[in-house]
Amino acid sequence: MTALDISADGEGTVRGIRPPLHRGLWAACLLILVLGGSALLPANLLEIDASAIGRAPDPGHPFGTDSLGRDVAARTLAALAMSVKVGLVAATASTGIALLLSLAAASNRVADQAVGVLTELALGLPHFVLLIMIAYAMGGGTNGVVVAIAFTHWPRLARLLRHEAQGVAASDYVAASQALGRPAHWIARHHMAPHLAPHLIAGFVLIFPHAILHEAGLSFIGLGIEPHLPSIGVMLAESLREIIAGRWWVAVAPGAGLLLVALAFERFGEALRVAAEPPGGAS
């Protein structure tokens, strides 16, 4: 890959920015809606209420109430906010790990080999099994979920970044900079960063929906967030039994909410990824 190609790629991302922006707006709107809405939610809406157990949807409770009389709509909003927060922290940590490893790989050969092996190893392990093992070892809870997600979602992005970093490091202009006596941090800032940043952002946005889904998955099987706290996974797990008892509405709001948020970010991330990718390139 030559300097010319890469600068052409850069141009390409600028030209193809419309769909990511469009989808980004959607995702951002959802994020603000969820976080803002849950922050403004009156606390009494999340309270248990023995007098309103298992109500079907009505104007007072648009998505009904659950087996402890809690409003499902309000609880879903709070649960989504919890998921989004967990997802943000875990995705940030995961992206950070990927970046650190790829930079380490770019620095010398031995580290590169080590990172390569580690990445392939992590990719080879079944994703959810590793997730469960880490969450279990951490004793469950919100922290366990965050750590488990952070330590399982980095390999794909790390592999991508490592390839990119290697490509840039082997390029003529980096060689030229080195010949001109530029220090390593200058090269990192002026050559590496501009090329890695788009991938990093796209990677982050792509990890985010996975983080949310896996948070829900872990909480669903009881290794995640404490069951009395609002969380999508917990709500879906509870709704299993409720559905058998005929209360279908308990599953609708959390299911649809999770789908909506995860899908919005997945599409946004996908658009970013396509934009960040060189035309016809594989990563």
């Binding site: 248990i48 087996s67 402890l68 469950g140 009881g222 404490e226 069951p227 009395h228 509870e238």
Partner: peptide, 8 residues
Amino acid sequence: SSDSTRQA
């Protein structure tokens, strides 16, 4: 956490 009655 596995016991929904005690949770309630």
